[in-house]
Amino acid sequence: MNAAEPIALVLFVSDDSPRSIVATANIQQALEAGTGSDFALEIVNVFAEPDRALAARVLVTPTLLAPAAARRLVGDLSEHEKLRYFLHGLQIAEVPPGDDPA
């Protein structure tokens, strides 16, 4: 299931707020465990690049965006199943058997 181009992921964060740090750690952890397609994660600080936040209509942080698939996940990504399902939907991660997304 390898794609030629790596799948772009953008995580919008607010400076180094606690939730931003948690979200960054969570996504990195999930991606390290992933066995699917190639990906490229970019972290954007909305206070440093407000124009990108505006263009992507990111009013809440953290927001994880998959621009190509037009999908977004908001929050500090602490609900790991939801994060895994999100990544699975992008064919980046496998879904653990028996898990049921809420």
Partner: peptide
């Protein structure tokens, strides 16, 4: 989809 809590940092930045 929502996973965990969020803040209004984007709104304030924009």
């Amino acid at each position: 989809v929502q996973s965990g809590t969020f803040d209004v940092g984007g709104l304030i930045a924009i």
